[in-house]
Computed example of a mutant assay.
Amino acid sequence: MNYRKLLCFLPLIALITSCSVLPKKDAFEATSTKVSLAVLGTKERSFRKTDFETVGIPVLKKPVALNYSVHNFTEDLFKEYTNMSSGQPAPVVKYVDSLENKPKFVVLEIMDKVLLLSQLNKDVNRTSRTYIKNRPNTKIITGVRMVLTAEMKTQLKAADALYLTSNKRNKNIVLLYKKERQIGTLSLDNSFAFGYKMASFCWDISEEKQVRLGALVGDGERCSQKMLRDPKKLEERRIQEYLSF
């Protein structure tokens, strides 16, 4: 073995290895427009941010489980929050990099995506589903970064489980649970979302040979081989299979 050649290749191997463990791109995008969990819409890119234009709110008859986590502001995220909240009625946040106790924000994410898709396929959401079918680039908000009021923080601390559902006015609210018992509700109207995560829809064909929403994938990700982003192509495939049978 030529050890000189091996030594020449070591820096290249180290570079390749280091590239393989690069941190993943942040799935959240900055926004200056009002967003909320589970709403449908389209994104509009600009130089500094990606604004989200809401076009519809699906009806959630069954509560969808949420994941809730608390995070410290970093300097970059605080700048993002400051830029997005400028001129808007957002909670006041003070950040000093030298202080050990940093201000915090929360992340709410839809955890039970299977149940969410099941409800989107129900008759009550036929209008929303038709809209998605005609506009395959439609997205759904699956996560938000938020700054809460002091009252909302107190409410969340008392709960050990959160669920998203629709009230009688078909407006999404958060149900607060403690030891499997509902202890309250939370409206997100007074919160301020300065970042959001989107998902795209994939369509498949059910066992009853009906075209339906089959999966949610991260923004920019591809559907599996059996699913398609455009449902009209699936309908064409179903017709061809029926004619060839």
Rank of each mutant, 00 (worst) to 15 (best):
V106E: 11
V107Y: 05
V107H: 05
L108E: 01
L108N: 01
E109Q: 14
I110L: 11
I110A: 02
I110Q: 00
I110P: 00
M111A: 11
D112L: 03
D112H: 03
L115W: 01
L115Y: 03
L115C: 05
S118V: 04
K122H: 15
D123M: 11
V124W: 07
N125L: 06
R126V: 12
S128I: 06
R129V: 05
T130N: 12
Y131G: 12
Y131L: 15
I132H: 02
N134L: 07
N134Q: 09
R135N: 11
P136H: 09
P136G: 08
P136D: 09
N137F: 13
T138E: 07
I141Y: 03
T142L: 13
T142S: 14
R145I: 09
M146W: 09
M146S: 13
V147N: 03
A150R: 14
Q155V: 10
L156K: 11
L156D: 08
K157E: 14
K157Q: 15
A159H: 07
A159Y: 06
A159T: 11
A159P: 05
D160R: 06
A161I: 08
T165D: 07
N167Y: 10
R169E: 15
R169S: 14
N170M: 08
N172Y: 10
V174Q: 03
L175T: 10
Y177Q: 07
K178E: 10
E180C: 08
E180N: 13
E180F: 13
R181Y: 10
Q182R: 12
Q182V: 06
G184N: 08
T185L: 14
T185F: 12
L188H: 01
D189Y: 14
N190L: 13
N190T: 12
G195N: 05
G195Q: 01
G195T: 09
Y196N: 03
M198P: 03
S200K: 09
F201H: 02
F201G: 01
C202T: 03
C202K: 01
W203G: 00
W203M: 01
W203D: 00
I205Y: 01
I205P: 00
S206M: 04
S206A: 06
E207V: 10
Q210P: 03
V211D: 00
V211C: 01
R212W: 04
R212I: 14
R212E: 11
L213C: 04
L213A: 05
G214P: 00
G214M: 00
